[in-house]
Write a protein that binds this DNA or RNA. Sequence first.
DNA 1: TTGTTATTGAAAATCAATTTCAATTAGAGA
DNA 2: TCTCTAATTGAAATTGATTTTCAATAACAA
Lengths: 138, 138
Amino acid sequence: MTAIPWLTQLQENGYRLTEARRAVVETVQGSTHALTPLQVFDLARKKYPALGLVSVYRTLEKLEELHLIQRVHQPSGCQAFISAGSGHQHLLLCQNCGKVEFFEGDDLEVLTEAIARRTGYQIKEHWLQLFGLCQNCQ
Amino acid sequence: MTAIPWLTQLQENGYRLTEARRAVVETVQGSTHALTPLQVFDLARKKYPALGLVSVYRTLEKLEELHLIQRVHQPSGCQAFISAGSGHQHLLLCQNCGKVEFFEGDDLEVLTEAIARRTGYQIKEHWLQLFGLCQNCQ
DNA sequence: TTGTTATTGAAAATCAATTTCAATTAGAGA
DNA sequence: TCTCTAATTGAAATTGATTTTCAATAACAA
Ligand SMILES: [Mn+2]
Ligand SMILES: [Mn+2]
Ligand SMILES: [Zn+2]
Ligand SMILES: [Zn+2]
């Protein structure tokens, strides 16, 4: 719920703790919606008006590198980021407001094995994403 | 196997049949790999050297609009296109060479209903994509 | 064959993302 | 606390993909 663990992890990986980073981290960490770099910029500038857009890109890059955030692919575009789920998880996205939920417990073993057999592919991983309307947007 | 149905469908939708379009359509229609606009350009120019990159973008736009091609999302980027599957299908992609296979027969009913109940979302659709290595690339 | 209008490719414009750079600042060590 | 240095900053320039503009061309209906 707090941004401190992310800031700590940045520091533990040799990155310095700055105002710009703090603003970006607090913005992304606390969001229940996937945010584009520009959206992060607009929100984070409220916390730290001197922030430059470049620092948003640079911080997002580091957060992705540390697997603290992940890119969200949508029909409307693939530039948005959200706090990464822990372990093997999948996304459920609201088509209207972009609200994100994680879920796990899909069981694709049987399916992937059948497809591997039929196609001759060696299957390594999968993407599963659900789209719909959140309670607010129905 | 032939590009004629696509060309016919373009014509039926009021679009004229030109050399540029024919070259792009033949290139994309016949490919087993997802192709970026630039890859389409390079391949289609062999058929029609006067082709401009702009016409590639414009033709891909129309083919997507008619649901003859679909965008392919990958960790490495989301600009590539492939012939669209018919009906409800999913993709299996080779992580090495980009070869694409379609499959169907996933059964996510139980899963999506459980998640709908738990999250309160009304689930409308899903994306399922498998990644691996094709026979050639293993 | 003719006329209209969609389509073309080249060039210019746009837009997001990246790189460059000189000034600033975090934070390690004294 | 003070000093030093390398990381970080935001502005500006650059890049690269995509879109728009435009005058010339060509598809195709009549
Ligand atoms: Mn899974
Ligand atoms: Mn399905
Ligand atoms: Zn919503
Ligand atoms: Zn392959």
